[in-house]
Design a protein around this nucleic acid. Structure first.
Length: 701
DNA sequence: GTTTGGCCTG
DNA sequence: CAGGCCAAAC
């Protein structure tokens, strides 16, 4: 059963994820339907688990609420998506857009196709959505936030509500006559059962801290609610003001519809409102009463945007703060984070909030995906929306691809560096500066993930030019999925690595880009320690622009590093290439690079030593290496072609020593020994010097 | 068994 | 620069 139907995006995040065949790489919630999620572990997990789980639960409930909205309250495209994709377990989301006008589209499942929808319906829909926002924001007496049930009670309640919601959902689905072919997936359930059995709590030893934590969390949540209420009031205020302006910009409503839907979801999720509150079905007296078709209720576009931005910013800030605090508490108290696995937010959260995040992160600084020199047929299939499950699955491509990833010409490495490495986030987002000089800690990353990660709204972090923001003026001219995709992949990235619009409506699924591999040492280690983290690391890969492949910039950097170290250990390499997602292959490649560097280096040394002997140099002291030396020029040309790097004097010394070693060996006929170089290597490998710190923080010196 | 370095080849 | 191969070191 696919209960995330209102969210076509996330569904396809699952279906279209290239890592589909690697479930362990995905957030657990990506793989399972919401209601099959194990709930038993709830009672035993730490407070943070309960808190976030509640969010998940409420969000999940919110998803349900969309069914109650009826077509009038959900954007038509979303409805189309609901009805169209439900029938296909692995069909591209592009179909959702195409279905609107396609012969195969079933009009009975929706009120009417977008193109034929009367203007009045349009206005009704918009009004209903705004109503929905307010309604959800208003919360409900049943909201969990209003009372913290006992833990034991919570289990039963969760299960009960879960079942009830499922029943209501099914009933409602029948009412809407929506096709329902995926409401139960035994295999998924099997996965769930297994997860259930392993997702048990670990907080028995933490009971003493729970009450305290619980109290703190309650306070934080209450303050959050308070802030949200204030926001709600603001919203209502503006809404009432703008109600008189309604109907003016109906022709621009397409984008707003989506935005409102997204916003509605975000707000609803954040407010933990009465997600299960039944919305009047389209055509019901209540909804008719509320919708005045003739006048419509579109908000002024600009002010809507302002309001939208304000709300999003405020909400993001509040939630971020709260989560940050919570996480700090959890981190400082040493609580086990593993139960996070059982509370990963609903996919919708990632779709709504994550959309902006990924767009923001990737917009101005496109990540570097390794190009696929040979586009396999499976990729074509993926373009059809079946997901990149074959050739792009991480472990399938470890060695087949070109190991040096060329970046798109429009994103020269050096110009990208400030945003990709030195400044993973735009200037106006200083909150998280990735400190490459120090080892990453799980909590550090998790905290960031929770703070700015895929579940929060990154709208404020965008490095996109304003014209590409979600609320860009031209957004209304584009289908939502197109806009979403374009923003998501960035202005230049789209051309470089075109993605079908079928996947464009997907947001977080792009976290499952083919180059994401779980062999990464650090992140994988984290993932092993924390079952929740595989997906986190996937997200992190993108957020931090960690790339799996090595690009020419890395090569350049490695060459410059060679001036300092001829025999770097793999650990050193990992330390000094923090933006590289290391796996065995990458490590080997880097080591191979240095091996090649050495090869060239020693070849030059031998060559010049022999030349010196031929030239009649009879004393090694007459052999020196200076910056004017031909030997140095040759080396510099090889390792520092652009000559934009000041080669350290130490390298000249080492080069001279090496030259002397070769000269001595050759002049003493040691070169007759097949392994005569080994002695020289032994000497040279001890002459490595420490790398400057700058190498840690920049991939483009 | 894996990692690493070196050599050879393309 | 990468791949293959081999050997030494861990």
């Amino acid at each position: 059963m696919n209960l995330s139907l209102p969210d076509q995006n996330m569904h396809n995040a699952l279906q279209g994820c290239p890592d589909d065949d690697k479930p362990e790489l995905m957030l657990p919630c990506f793989r399972r339907n919401a209601y099959d999620e194990p709930l038993a572990s709830y009672s035993n997990g730490p407070i943070i688990s309960q808190l976030l789980r509640k969010s998940l639960h409420n969000k999940r409930a919110l998803d349900e609420s969309h069914y109650y909205l009826g077509p009038s309250a959900v954007s038509s495209s979303a409805v189309v998506a609901d009805s169209s994709q439900e029938d296909r377990s692995s069909v591209s989301s592009k179909d959702s857009a195409a279905d609107v006008g396609s012969p195969g589209f079933h009009p009975s499942t929706v009120a009417s196709p977008e193109a034929e929808r009367p203007v009045n319906d349009h206005l009704q829909a918009k009004r209903a959505r705004v109503e929905n926002i307010i309604r959800v924001m208003a919360g409900s007496p049943n909201s969990r936030l209003h009372g913290e049930p006992e833990k034991g009670e919570m289990d039963a309640r969760d299960s009960r509500e879960c079942r009830e919601a499922r029943e209501v959902y099914r009933e409602n689905k029948r009412k809407q006559r929506l096709p329902q072919h995926q409401d139960h997936n035994p295999s998924d359930e099997g996965i769930e059962n297994r997860r259930l059995s392993t997702g048990g709590g670990s907080g028995s030893s933490l009971d003493n801290t729970k009450d305290e934590e619980c109290h703190k969390l309650k306070e934080q949540l209450q303050s959050m609610q308070k802030l949200l209420r204030q926001l709600q009031e603001k919203f209502l205020q503006v809404y009432n003001q703008e109600d008189s302006h309604r109907g003016e910009r109906e022709d621009r409503g397409g984008c707003l519809e989506h935005d409102n839907l997204i916003q509605s979801k975000e707000l609803s999720y954040l407010t933990n409102g009465n997600a299960f509150e039944k919305k009047p079905a389209r055509g019901s007296p209540e909804s008719k009463d509320r919708t005045k078709p003739a006048e419509g209720n579109l908000l002024n576009l600009r002010e809507t945007k302002n309001l939208q931005d304000t709300l999003k910013g405020e909400l993001s800030r509040v939630v971020n703060e709260c989560v940050d605090k919570v996480f700090k508490n959890v981190s400082s108290s040493g609580l086990d984070l593993s139960p996070l696995r059982s509370m990963c937010p609903s996919p919708d959260v990632q779709t709504s909030g994550g959309a902006a995040e990924i767009r923001s992160q990737q917009g101005g600084c496109p990540p570097q995906e390794p190009p696929h020199p040979v586009e396999p047929p499976s990729h074509q299939r993926s373009l059809e929306g079946h997901g990149d499950t074959d050739a792009q699955s991480p472990q399938d491509q470890t060695e087949a691809l070109s190991l040096v990833v060329r970046k798109p010409a429009m994103a020269p490495l050096c110009s990208v560096t400030p945003t990709t490495v030195k400044r993973p986030y735009p200037m106006h987002q200083p909150a998280f500066q990735f400190n490459y000089s120090s080892p990453l800690h799980d909590t550090q990353i998790l905290e960031h993930l929770l703070k700015y990660g895929p579940h929060t709204n990154f709208s404020g972090l965008s490095c996109l030019p304003p014209s590409l923001e979600r609320s860009s003026p031209d957004s209304g001219e584009l289908p939502w999925d197109t806009l979403s995709m374009r923003s998501k992949v960035g202005p230049g990235h789209l051309g470089h690595h075109p993605r079908p619009s079928s996947l464009g409506s997907v947001t977080v699924d792009n976290l499952c880009l083919p180059h994401v591999k779980m062999e990464c040492s650090d992140l994988q280690g984290m993932a092993e320690r924390n079952p929740y983290l595989p997906a986190v690391s996937v997200a992190l890969t993108h957020i931090l622009h960690i790339q799996e492949g090595l690009n020419p910039n890395h090569l350049k950097k490695a060459k410059l590093m060679f001036f300092y170290t001829r025999y770097p250990s793999s650990n050193v390499l990992k330390t000094y290439f923090p933006d590289v997602k290391f796996n065995r292959c990458i490590t080997s490649q880097l080591i191979k690079w240095f091996s090649n560097f050495r090869e060239f280096y020693y070849i030059q040394m031998e060559k010049f030593a022999r030349q010196a002997i031929v030239d009649g140099v009879n004393n090694v002291d007459n052999l020196s290496v200076s910056r004017d030396s031909e030997l140095f020029r040759a080396l510099n040309m090889h390792y520092n072609k652009a000559n934009d790097f000041q080669v350290p004097d130490r390298f000249l010394e080492v080069a001279e020593i090496t030259l002397h070693e070769f000269y001595n060996a050759i002049s003493t006929a040691k070169d007759s020994d097949p392994s005569w170089k080994k002695a020289i290597y032994k000497v040279i490998c001890k002459l490595d010097s420490d790398l400057p710190e700058e190498f840690k923080t920049s991939s483009c010196l």
